[in-house]
Design a protein around this nucleic acid. Structure first.
Length: 824
RNA sequence: GCCGGAGUGGCGGAAUUGGCAGACGCACGGGACUUAAAAUCCCGCGAUCCUUACCGAUCGUACCGGUUCGACCCCGGUCUCCGGCACCA
């Protein structure tokens, strides 16, 4: 082995060896326990960033460790390669999205290989390739046949800059998640997936133990997003009309306090209700104004309430009182029924509305709080309490009044129990080119008909123009649109929209299980062998979008009988961001550290080691050049030691630790073996795993230059140290392994066994406390019992001195740990 | 506003079940080696106080309080920061 640590050559050499020997290629093997380790696949932007390096380093340590620990490890990689940037490149630079994407994929593959990641590249999937999107289309058709896909006209989120619709999940703070342009509403006919059918199951599984391996935070975020609320729908008749307005409320107990009613501006009967009346113009003006607002303006909670009276009255089914009907933008058409009962005394929004329009405020719940005067409210009071002014339920507890009123409404036919969700159906069509074509055909006679499965894939046309404007670019193709109806054979037209790329990433983990299948998306037996993903690793920014869509897909595919598994990801690790100087790395701040630069200067092993050592994976990590230097120095230190020890040609033989130094080294070695197993295999604390390896190296440095060197022991420590380091820094480990004459590849070695006996020391240090404060320490035999321990502690000079003239009230002795004297 | 999470040296962080606070690393300081420097190796490194020095003492995990023989850890309250959701009836 060269004296100098020549990482460049070492890394190149071993990457080639792994590739040639197919070290990380796997097949199903029922005799072995499987482990599916998966990192979120990247979008092929063309350049790897530090976030990727962190993500894949974490996954690689886990995958390599599990392999060494005897598992049959599936560790695949691919590219989420449909999407907008490719199309923007086409618009700006005239490069075809396909060319741009594939060039980037190849460049990123190269960069990933440079990191020495243990992927089975044979299983690579790129979502933009025909053999992937063919099955994406097939799955779409199965969803359609099952009634999970449907097309409907609806006001949708529209990004004026991207010129496409967006799913609710892609609108963040009222702006487009991608380009930050304020989102507007547009009425369009679009494809949807019925994810709401799965709302309950998606919710149930968050809490029934199936996802206990997920961070609580992510589960809560999904729970809030699904937003289930239990309540009641109540029917209000419109005065002098046959119309019935149904409202949803979670507080039916407050129905006696309803003093007005509010409809969403889009409510379908509003226009006919005002037609030809004096209110028509005001209402039309208001609706027009609301339509021109973007999402930010519309959903601002700080804005003063607005609205107009539509000239009609609703009748409260319980009090028979007449109540004016308004429209206002604070009522949303997309949630509940689009109509709400206004209870200003107990709902803050209604309170503000009533105050603005001078409407009556009737308190019906007394919270029994001396600080609240219900007859002079300064704001709404949402607390529960005792019912007042409420007919037959007056005097009841408001919490009891809710079930009582629901029952009463059901008995008298005035309403019924109802569960509502914030979750909406998933809008999946996009007016873009670079995505999976939706395999649907519109026939004048038959309506929407799916393409025949044997005709898949519906290929993306190549004769399109990229203008970035108007409808889907596919519409500019001369050949794509026209076709014949698969059902009746008449002339028909293809759908020109493509699928949201979040569909592609909702099942790629299944395709990895069987990526070459030309008969179906994946073989059930293969998928059932590998699934669930035992460890999924990625950024927390996907907590809602990707992670919920993938769960929905898995459930739907399960229900279609394609897999036995209902949830895709058993354990989830969400890694924190990589920052520089406390700020996010970004071009505009000029603080971007490029992985290529670091690999060039220090090598991949150093980059991996630093990133794993600097912080626990869930936390943010601040990039530190000095820290990288430190990681590099550690590798140099190990390399130098192995070089020196191998030159000494240490003797083999039976390991019998004799001296205290032997025992200490043997302890450190076995402790490290155990610690790394726990920290990498269970706790995901790579930083402490590495620190225990550092401690072992420090101990070995001290030991090797000592007087009585136990050569077989030192040799074993060196060998096992190299194996322990392998998951973290595989290249240098292979090099050192080869150098000391190790058999086979270091990556193929079994994880060293921990000798538990070595961890039991003959003597232990015991702490002596007085009133809980540390006063003395002593070394005693490990077998000593409570009574003896107590006796020895009381004999300590220090204790005698400090307890002189005082009484010892109580002695607490914990063998192996401490003695605490309570003294007065 | 609602729901989460976090707060430990100069810095990143450790303390896994309530039992020695600060492992490991960075930075810094000192020493050895060297003509010199780099590299390397060794030592020190929370604060305050006492002491010539050694030895030691007191305080210390955001803040206030509680439980306990014993609290970074459990309980109650406060502050600050971060994240998510947000006119969801």
């Amino acid at each position: 082995m060269e004296e100098r640590y020549n990482f460049k050559e070492i890394e190149k050499k071993w990457q080639k060896v792994w590739e040639e020997r197919e070290t990380f290629k796997v097949t199903e093997d029922p005799s072995k326990e499987k482990f599916y380790c998966l990192e979120m696949f990247p979008y092929p932007s063309g350049k790897l960033h530090m976030g990727h390096v962190r993500n894949y380093s974490i996954g690689d340590v886990v995958a390599r460790f599990k392999k060494m620990d005897g598992f049959n490890v599936l560790h695949p990689m691919g590219f989420d390669s449909f999407g907008l940037p490719a199309e923007n490149a086409a618009i700006q630079h005239g490069i075809h999205p396909s060319t741009w994407t594939w060039d980037n994929i190849h460049e990123m593959e190269r960069q990933l290989r440079e990191l020495g990641l243990s992927y089975d590249w044979d299983r690579e999937c790129c979502t933009c390739s025909e053999d992937y999107y063919r099955w994406m289309q097939w799955i779409f058709i199965q969803f359609y046949k099952k009634g999970l896909a449907y097309k409907k006209e609806n006001p949708v989120n529209w990004c004026p800059s991207c010129q496409t619709v967006l799913a609710n999940e892609q609108v963040v703070d009222g702006v487009c998640e991608r380009c930050k342009t304020p989102v507007t509403k547009k009425n369009l006919s679009q494809w949807y997936f019925k994810i709401t059918d799965y709302a309950d199951r998606l919710l149930e599984n968050l809490d029934n133990g199936k996802l206990d391996g997920w961070p609580q935070k992510v589960r809560l975020m999904q729970k809030n997003w699904i937003g289930r609320s239990y309540g009641c729908e109540v029917d209000f008749k419109v005065k002098d009309s046959d119309e019935v307005l149904t409202v949803f409320t979670t507080r039916v107990d407050t129905i006696y306090g309803t003093t007005f009613m509010v409809l969403a501006p889009e409510y379908p009967t509003v226009l006919e209700n005002v037609k030809g009346t004096e209110y028509e113009q005001d209402v039309l003006d208001y609706i027009e104004r609301v339509n021109h607002m973007n999402e930010i303006e519309r959903t601002s909670t700080t804005a003063e309430k607005t609205g107009v009276f539509i000239g009609k009255y609703a009748i409260n089914p319980f009090t028979h009182k007449e109540m004016p009907i308004y429209i206002s933008d604070y009522v949303l058409m997309g949630y509940g029924t689009g109509a709400v009962m206004g209870v200003p005394a107990h709902d803050q929004r209604d309170f503000e509305f009533a105050t603005k329009f001078g409407l009556e405020i009737t308190p019906v719940v007394d919270p029994q709080d001396p600080e609240v005067d219900v007859n002079d409210l300064k704001e709404a009071c949402a607390a529960s309490g005792i019912m007042i002014n409420s007919g037959e339920i007056t005097g009841m507890k408001s919490d009891d009044a809710i079930p009582y009123m629901i029952e009463k409404a059901e008995k008298e036919g005035l309403g019924h129990r109802k569960v509502n969700y914030k979750l909406r159906d998933w809008l999946i069509s996009r007016q873009r080119y670079w995505g999976t074509p939706i395999p649907m055909i519109y026939c004048e006679d038959c309506g929407w008909v799916p393409e025949k499965e044997e005709n898949l894939p519906v290929l993306l046309p190549t004769d399109v123009e990229f203008t970035g404007k108007g409808e889907s670019p596919i519409a500019t193709s001369k050949t794509f649109r026209d076709c014949t109806c698969p059902r009746c054979g008449k002339k028909a037209q293809r759908e020109v929209d493509t699928m949201d790329t979040f569909l592609d990433s909702s099942w790629y983990f299944l395709r990895y299980c069987d990526n070459k299948n030309t008969e179906k998306p994946f073989d059930k037996a293969k998928a059932d062998y590998w699934m669930d993903v035992d460890q999924y690793i990625g950024g927390v920014e996907h907590a809602i979008l990707h992670l919920m869509y993938a769960r929905f897909f898995q459930m739907a595919l399960h229900d279609l009988g394609l897999t036995d598994h209902e949830e895709p990801f058993k354990n989830l690790l969400t890694q924190g961001m990589v920052n520089k100087d406390g700020k996010k790395m970004s071009k505009s701040l000029g603080n971007v550290v490029s992985p290529a630069e670091i690999i060039e200067k220090y090598g991949a092993d150093t980059a991996r080691l630093f990133i794993l050592f600097a912080a626990p994976p869930e936390r943010e990590l601040d990039w530190s050049d000095a820290g990288v230097e430190g990681a590099f120095r550690f590798l140099l230190r190990v390399y130098r030691m192995v070089n020196e020890l191998s030159a000494r040609d240490l003797k083999d033989g039976e390991i019998v630790p004799k001296t205290a130094e032997d025992k200490s080294l043997n302890y450190r070695l076995n402790f490290c073996i155990k610690k790394v197993r726990e920290d990498v295999g269970g706790r995901f604390m790579f930083n402490t795993a590495i620190s225990s390896a550092m401690e072992l190296v420090n101990e070995m440095y001290k030991y090797k230059d000592g007087k009585n060197v136990n050569e077989p022991l030192l040799k074993k420590a060196m060998k096992e140290l190299i194996v322990i380091l392998c998951p973290f820094v595989p290249h240098i480990s292979e090099e050192m392994w080869e150098h000391i004459g190790g058999q086979g590849l270091c990556s193929d070695q079994p994880w060293p066994a921990c000798d538990e006996k070595a961890l039991v020391l003959d003597e232990v240090e015991i702490v002596i406390q007085i009133n809980g404060k540390l006063k003395d320490k002593m070394v005693v035999s490990k077998d000593i019992d409570k009574a003896e321990l107590e006796k020895i502690a009381l004999e300590s000079e220090k204790v005698k001195e400090l307890t002189e003239g005082k009484t010892i009230i109580k002695v607490i002795a914990v063998p192996g740990r401490l003695v605490n004297l309570v003294v007065k």
